[in-house]
Design a binder for these strands. Structure first.
Length: 737
DNA sequence: GCTTGCGGTATTTTT
DNA sequence: TACCGCAAGC
């Protein structure tokens, strides 16, 4: 009882209410910095300590492996003992375990592999070819994400409303995927749902086993995940869902805010606790964040009160360009380091934005870490080796076979593989099995190559049965010739060798934890870069997405340019804009003590010059929370006077509706209408991709690209009726619409 | 049949 | 700016 008492004494009133909730569904709406993780971990600890629940009954689900590890650690620390039985992990891990346990019932082979995104694309490409479809109507990438979205929404190929092309693609892709002996990422959830729907015995067994479910980041659940929970818990589940619709940033991956907004509709007897005290950010930061997110409409009207005390204003800075921005940020970082800030982060919308900051930090010898930059598990040399491993674990893995057989190059090319493919189709064998039969259509050279390859594989299989995983990987690298590919002393090869060594180490480490080969591979497939450990004194460079759930003393939210932070591409709609605003909100609320918001007057994005207008989100921040540091000294020569820029921030926000309520919907209109008048010919910054324009001859169109700057600016415009044209706005009479 | 070089195109976010 | 696909040489 002492333990319980001391647990509860560390909580505020609302937190305590959530933690000590009894049976039945509970929704905890946890605003940023309100102690969400604390509630979740304390609740688990409380349920166990109070003797209400046994640990093997608990299923705690998070979105990242890292969050899962943390949760487990924290609960164990609270309890003072390890958490046994039960499940703590991601949705995908849960689903994969389920499928591994019941492959036949899920309609899968005993051993199946997991296709990554690359492989999905390759598979789709082959499907395109087989159906003799052109990628012009639908690029492969798009098709992939449409299919992914369908799966996350639990739609079967046949159920596709009225788009035969996609439905065919989807169906053929499924066929190819299964023929390759693989499932993709989305299948884990989809097939698990189907499995539970079709096998009542399995569903019942699971449901009674995991009778206490806790879900973190509930706002990011998609239809498949929600359905999974529903199947396990039924109408009156002991389900604790914790989330915040304001931090829902995975719509593009199928996440549906409706899951959290309509929670009480799904579970009518659900209790609801709103955690409204923010313990993280000082007042101006919270005010800035609240001002922005208040403009969203799809949310509960709620507000966070600051319990972190007063603090410095939010610093705003408009740089001349991205180099200048990086310089400003680096100076700020050095200052923060001198001040002893615990945790500094630079957050941006897209990965590509990290470069200038890296360059500047390298120059100043400031240690930093890029999250999600060069992803270890996506490196070619790592994937090559993994392909071999996959073949050892699953000899019928067609995708791994395709990859492995070609590296290092053995004289087996597209043609030879095509012959094998035909043989496989004719015989019903898997691709690797068909290759083993050495189809007569192969040239004798190819035949020899295949023989050599399979001899190698057999050797390795033999080793795998007797040696440690570490040894297997090492032998594999040596005997296959993968290691020999990178022997030179240049940096590139050195890095690749290094990565291969790291893979050996990873295998050894997995073995220590008792994982076998296929367990290791599963883990690798589920692993992401976000799971890497954080070194505390290094500055963290990260996308906004990857920063969710973290906090830092000092945060630089950079690239707040119109079109970049509300990232706008063709087809972006109002819901997308709201999601972008949530991203900005997530970024701002990562900061404990100091927040900096920066934008640039011009910016090179992919070698192209972009934009020039500050993000509309900057104008949504209450001016009294801001401290504009844009210095006249830093301005490029053609910049407007500082005073007018200052007015741009302060003045622009004045005509805002005084209503603080989310109902003041004039907002979007506001940000649009606050655009400056027609772009002047020659002012590069006024033109940006996505801008709708009218030309006296070509009619209306949309700007695709902005090239060059000043009077040399050229625009690539796509006209509705005339297609793609390159124009010089200084000469062409082009008007924004 | 494989490697090399060129030109065109494209990038949001990730379990 | 970086990658990929495609075409021509070996």
């Amino acid at each position: 009882m002492d333990r319980i008492g001391s647990l509860l004494s560390r909580l505020d009133e609302d937190q305590r209410r959530a933690v000590t909730h009894g049976e039945g569904p509970l929704l905890v709406v946890a605003g940023a910095g309100s102690g969400k993780t604390r509630v979740l971990t304390y609740r688990i600890a409380w349920l166990l300590a109070a003797g209400r629940v046994r640990s093997h009954q608990i299923m705690a689900v998070t979105f990242t492996n890292k969050a899962a590890h943390e949760m487990r650690e924290r609960v164990e620390a609270l309890l003072g003992q390890p958490l046994c039985g039960g499940f703590v992990g991601t949705f995908h891990r849960f689903a994969l375990q389920l499928l591994r346990r019941h492959p036949r019932e899920a309609g899968l082979p005993e051993r199946f592999s997991i296709a990554d995104e690359d492989e999905q694309r390759k598979l789709l490409e082959s499907v395109y070819k087989r159906l003799s479809l052109s990628t012009e109507r639908l690029p492969v990438r798009q098709a992939r994400s449409r299919i992914s979205a369908a799966k996350n929404a639990l739609q079967a190929p046949g159920a596709w409303p009225g788009i035969p092309l996609l439905a065919d693609l989807y169906a053929a892709y499924e066929e190819a995927l299964r023929a390759a002996g693989a499932v993709d990422f989305d299948d884990m959830l989809l097939l698990s749902v189907r499995l539970l729907e079709q096998h009542e015995d399995i569903r019942k067994a699971l449901a009674s086993r995991f009778s206490w479910m806790l879900v973190d980041e509930y706002q990011d659940t998609n239809a498949a995940q929600a359905q999974l929970l529903w199947l396990l818990g039924g109408r009156h589940p002991n389900l604790t869902a914790v989330g915040d619709e304001d931090q829902s940033i995975y719509r593009w991956r199928g996440a549906d805010v409706a899951n959290i907004l309509d929670f009480r509709h799904t579970y009518p007897d659900a209790s609801e606790v709103i955690l409204g005290r923010n313990y993280r950010s000082v007042e101006p930061i919270l005010a800035a964040a609240a001002g922005g997110i208040g403009c969203n409409r799809r949310r509960r009207a709620k507000h966070l009160t600051s319990h972190a005390g007063p603090g410095d204003l939010v610093i705003v800075f408009q740089a001349a360009d991205e180099i200048d921005e990086a310089r400003f940020v680096a100076e700020g970082i050095e200052q923060a380091r001198r001040d002893g800030a615990a945790g500094i982060a630079v957050l941006y919308r897209t990965n590509a934005q990290s470069r200038p900051f890296e360059a500047e930090l390298v120059r100043r010898a400031v240690p930093y870490r890029v999250v999600g930059g060069a992803r270890f598990w996506e490196r070619a040399e790592v994937k090559d080796a993994l392909a071999y491993l996959r073949l050892l674990a699953n000899p019928h893995d067609a995708l791994a076979f395709r990859r492995a057989v070609g590296v290092p190059s053995r004289g087996i090319g597209a043609v030879a593989l095509e012959h094998v493919e035909e043989a496989a189709l004719a015989s019903g064998l898997s691709l690797p099995a068909a290759a083993r039969t050495l189809p007569p259509t192969l040239t004798s050279r190819a035949r020899l190559s295949f023989q050599g390859f399979f001899a190698l594989l057999d050797e390795l299989v033999l080793i795998a049965t007797q040696a440690t995983p570490e040894k297997v990987v090492r032998e594999l690298l040596e005997r296959s010739g993968l290691a020999a590919q990178y022997v030179s002393s240049d940096e590139e090869d050195r890095v690749r060798r290094d990565n291969q060594d790291q893979l050996v180490a990873a295998a050894a480490e997995a073995a220590e934890r008792g994982l076998d080969l296929s367990g290791f591979l599963d883990e690798v497939a589920l692993l992401t870069d976000a799971d890497a450990r954080v070194s505390p004194d290094a500055v963290q460079l990260s996308t906004l997405h990857a920063a969710k759930g973290l906090e830092f003393d000092t945060v630089f939210l950079v690239g707040m340019d119109d079109g970049l932070l509300p990232l706008r591409r063709e087809g972006s709609d109002a819901d997308d804009e709201e999601e972008e605003r949530r991203l900005a909100y997530v970024g701002m609320t990562r900061a404990r003590r100091r927040l900096h918001l920066t934008c640039a007057r011009q910016r090179r994005v992919n070698g192209q010059l972009l934009g020039g207008r500050p993000s509309p989100f900057l104008f949504e921040v209450p001016p009294e929370a801001l401290d504009d540091r844009s210095s006249p000294l830093r301005r490029s020569p053609d910049a407007e006077p500082a005073s007018s820029r200052r007015r741009a921030y302060r003045g622009r926000s004045e005509p805002r509706s005084p209503l603080p309520s989310p109902l003041s919907s004039g907002r979007e209109g506001d940000s649009r209408s606050s655009q400056p008048g027609p772009p002047r010919p020659g002012s590069a910054s006024a033109w940006r991709p996505g801008l709708k324009v009218r030309h006296p001859t070509f009619g209306t169109g949309v700007v695709l690209q902005v090239q060059g700057g000043g009077a040399q600016t050229r625009l690539v415009v796509y006209f509705d009726r005339f297609g793609r044209k390159t124009l010089i706005p200084a000469l062409a009479n082009l008007q924004p619409v």
